[in-house]
Design a protein around this nucleic acid. Sequence first.
DNA 1: CCGTACATGTAACGTGTTACATGATTTT
DNA 2: AAAATCATGTAACACGTTACATGTACGG
Lengths: 181, 181
Amino acid sequence: MRTLKYAILGLLNRGPLTGYDITKEFASALGNFWSAKHSQIYPELKKLADEGLVVFHTVTQGEKLEKKLYTITPDGRKDFLQWLNQDEPLEPTPKDIFKLKTYFSDALPLGKRIEQFQSQLIKRREKLYILKNHKEKLYGSINPASLTDRQRSDYLVLQGAILREEAYVTWLRESIALLGS
Amino acid sequence: MRTLKYAILGLLNRGPLTGYDITKEFASALGNFWSAKHSQIYPELKKLADEGLVVFHTVTQGEKLEKKLYTITPDGRKDFLQWLNQDEPLEPTPKDIFKLKTYFSDALPLGKRIEQFQSQLIKRREKLYILKNHKEKLYGSINPASLTDRQRSDYLVLQGAILREEAYVTWLRESIALLGS
DNA sequence: CCGTACATGTAACGTGTTACATGATTTT
DNA sequence: AAAATCATGTAACACGTTACATGTACGG
């Protein structure tokens, strides 16, 4: 399906970047719904260049450090927009190791089961807290309807991550209540 | 991490199964949070047998059809329970192609963006409806506190799937409202 | 007897992670 | 001067999907 290809093209569609820049993008905001390591990114950039969807030119930083700055080509932009325009089928349900354990957890004593749920709850709440803080910092006092198109995209995916984590926390709380009854 | 290994051991911990039976399990209830194709299951069963965590004996169905019925060994049960007991770290955020598209969607005209959200909303609602129907059919009139341990595990993961889908539907509805404003 | 479900396997390919490998630049 | 960050790459391995390949049993 080449999703990494389109994630990279989507970033380059906003402006030229190096492989290192792209790696950093995947480690930040974008990381909430897609990610890749540099060991996957560099070969993919090479492949995209072979396919004529991107070009690079070398820029020199300081005395001799060479960076490859990648730019999307018209062909690349066309391919990217065609992907973006396609209707997206529902993905298969994402895998979830904790739910797998829950499914088999009748093999554990009740006390241990509850303990595991509580441990997950602490971690999920922490993650949710960080996401909410981030939202507050970026959009705290702003009416979301007044954002630019680009900011609105960023807002939507952050909000999506928050709703997902809230649902997980709700499930953990409900589960603990049920097990404790 | 060998998660498939433990998913299989977890199923065999409940009783002997063939590779075909395991394949069917992944295609049904369990499929809401873990799955694998038969092409992955048969080699994994062979590996588990080599490792001494399961044994199989051949049973004949009808005239000559041979089935391999796999049974978990004491070593296998020990390994499985040790995995089940381990505290589970938070997994990296699951990948989500539609959210990736959302992140880049400022490159599309507004009408198209809303259209895509509405298409997703229809599909997600359909999936949610199926899950809720399933819950109603299995537990409709029953007080969840009166379930056995085993039934409770099944109930919890189904409820987890429902909460996850509800959160996704909420996000899609919110997004459409914001984009339409 | 025909179609569906039962039953088991392998091969090729695509995707993703960890580890290996190297070196320059900037900050403390 | 040392440490952190910038910068780019490859190799080995693990995991997953699609396609190939074969044959039996059962219900209508």
